[in-house]
Amino acid sequence: MSLSTAEALTDALREEARRLLAEGTVAVVVGWEAGRFPNQTTPAFISDPEQAQRLVYGDYCVNTLAKYALGEKAAGKVAVCVRGCDSRGINRMIADNQLLRDEVYLLGLPCSGMKDPATGSLLMKCRTCTEHDAVTYDVLLGPATAAGHDGASADSSAGDSEHVSDEQRFTAVLGIEEMAPEKRRALFDAAFNKCIRCYACRKSCPCCTCRECFVDQLRAGWQGKQNNLAENRFYNITRVFHIGDRCIECGECERACPMGLPLMALNRKMVKDLKSLFNADDAGMTEENSAALGRYDLGDLEEFM
């Protein structure tokens, strides 16, 4: 987005945050503030209206924020800055009964894709994003960039992240599907071999909201503690199956991964299969639980019974 757009949105965000806090509508505002390094931002938690001027918005707000609502809601209503990814995360958590819509106040922000502060290039997760702008909000703080919404772009600089087709979205998956089984095996073995099991993927995921993750159920011992290919494979595959029909494709897991594992290729394989097998909706577009595997209708086919 242009500098003037970013400045205008930052001003609008600060003003709205200050107002919401001063009026007592919300207890805390979750957004971003400047970090130490050029262009770097870091999640910010503002509860004092006088501190609202710390908030920033622009091209480098790389963190998705939805999951922070869970940690903050005990203090009162939580205002969360939301773009497409953040808002779908909120919807997902509502659908998963982790959050009530009333517990959050959503500050909708237009988004034309975020950039890596170190390189200035569009983040991988934003290159394949299908919903740039918030899909749900209480107030919209700027005109829609609409790059992901039926064509027309309100912001000329949104050109760096045009509407993403299914073909583009599933490029990596299609490439892997075409590989010979041995090559595919080698690709994932190499990836899982370098996994250090820091669990940043799980912790950054708005779908990973289990109070106790299977990994931590030490007495059951599903997940062995050794770091080796077998255990790493088990962890990564279980993770992707568990979030399979709920993944909102925010790409935060892949961004958070310090080892550069192709986690979104795994997630999108699930998304693609669910689409073709069940005509599944994209996750997190509404507050309803539309998960293909995680809910049932009385009218579901039972051919296998």
């Binding site: 870091t42 999640p43 910010a44 938690f45 999951k67 922070y68 940690g71 903050e72 250090i196 099991r197 820091c198 669990y199 940043a200 799980r202 912790k203 950054s204 062995g224 503690k225 050794q226 958070a256 310090p258």
Partner: peptide, 27 residues
């Protein structure tokens, strides 16, 4: 205040050259 943004992953400790905590287990 500082811990609000921490997602409690283990990245910092695993990439740290001096973090040395371990856990003993068996199979």
């Amino acid at each position: 205040q500082l811990s609000k943004k921490c997602i409690t992953c283990g990245t910092c400790t695993f990439v740290c050259p001096t973090c040395h905590c371990f856990d003993i287990s068996q199979e």
